[in-house]
């Protein structure tokens, strides 16, 4: 008991009355705990090592590990390695990509498609974000933003299915067009790049809307008023004031949407057709079979990842230069 008393006075400063002895007090006088604390707190250096060891280990093995292993598998001739067989380093898996049209065509299609859709999403959501940030009172802003958030809580598959119902031959769009007498026969929207585009924009719009909204919301109204006082017209104000000051939001929104839309798998499978095969379907094809084609699949995934990262990196750099150039 005397031992406890010394620990108590050291750790809690003042010994509390019996009625004030909380869980924390009991913890601070519990011998295994005090022993542990003595071990941990002897030096700031040790304290840091104990705090940092697990996160560093985690990000290296769990975040970086999968990507490195993918890279490694892409560079060997067979995976999994059969017992007794030596594995060889090879670049053949990468060479296969350039050799066949059915491989590189979906790749470029995906890039063009993702780029176009990113631009469309920007054009579509900019007025919405502008309206919310500029023309709506503070109180309604959150409500109206929340209204848009609700559908985005719903998953990828469910929303893709909803688009299938909207655009099918007996879908709502064709029904409405028929009512108005605009068409006699349903327009086959489905299984085209159009249906795929509508579906992907439907899935990604929020990732564009939120960065745009927060950039526009930060922009003081007085800037536009000042420009107007100096005689700038609506278009000039938009081009010379609003646009340059929201480039940061545009840049992060576009990066997010581009990266996300290159990674969709289920949506192109369900909404696209044979003429709109995207690269994620090509990659996935190598993983449906038993496993002997994994190195090729890994190589293709690596090509895709590196290209996507390079393109978004260059894009961000360009936007950065543009931003700095304009504020000078």
């Amino acid at each position: 008991m005397s031992n406890d008393t010394t620990t108590r006075t050291k750790s809690a400063g003042v010994a509390p009355e019996k009625s004030d002895r909380t869980f924390w007090w009991w913890l601070s006088v519990w011998t295994p705990y005090t022993a542990l604390m003595k071990l941990v707190t002897t030096s700031p250096r040790r304290q840091f090592v104990i705090l940092a060891a697990f996160p560093i280990l985690w990000v290296l093995t769990q975040h970086l590990g999968p990507m490195l292993q993918m890279l490694r598998v892409s560079l060997i001739d067979a995976y999994p390695v059969a017992p007794g067989v030596e594995q060889h380093f090879t670049l053949d898996n990468y060479a296969r990509f350039f050799g066949e049209r059915i491989f590189w065509q979906p790749f470029f299609r995906t890039l063009i498609f993702a780029g176009t859709l990113t631009f469309c999403t920007l054009i579509l959501t900019f007025p919405v974000a502008y309206f919310l940030a500029r023309h709506v009172s503070r109180k309604n802003q959150l409500l109206m933003l929340l209204l848009l958030l609700i559908p985005f809580w719903v998953g990828e598959i469910v929303r893709t299915y909803a688009i299938m119902i909207l655009l099918g031959n007996t879908g709502a769009v064709n029904l409405v067009l028929k009512w108005f007498g605009l068409i006699d026969r349903p327009i086959p929207f489905m299984y085209t790049s159009f249906s795929m585009g509508i579906g992907i924009v439907y899935l990604t719009a929020l990732y564009m809307l939120l960065p745009l909204y927060s950039a526009l919301e930060k922009l003081p109204k007085s800037y536009g008023e000042a420009a107007a006082d100096l005689g700038a017209g609506a278009w000039t104000r938009f081009r010379r004031v609003t646009l340059p000051l929201t480039l940061e939001g545009i840049s992060s929104g576009c990066t997010l949407v581009f990266l996300i839309s290159t990674g969709f798998y289920a949506t192109p499978v369900l909404l696209g057709g044979p003429s709109t095969t995207v690269f994620s379907e090509t990659i996935a094809g190598f993983f449906h079979v038993a496993g002997d084609e994994w190195p090729t699949g890994a190589a293709f995934a690596t090509i895709m990842f590196v290209t996507a990262m390079l393109l978004t990196g260059i894009f961000q750099k360009l936007m950065y230069v543009l931003r700095k150039g304009d504020t000078k």
């Binding site: 292993q69 993918m70 798998y265 994620s280 990659i283 996935a284 699949g297 995934a301 990842f305 996507a308």
Partner: peptide
């Protein structure tokens, strides 16, 4: 991107 993360 989704598909690459799944494959990795």
């Amino acid at each position: 991107p989704g598909i690459i993360s799944a494959i990795a």
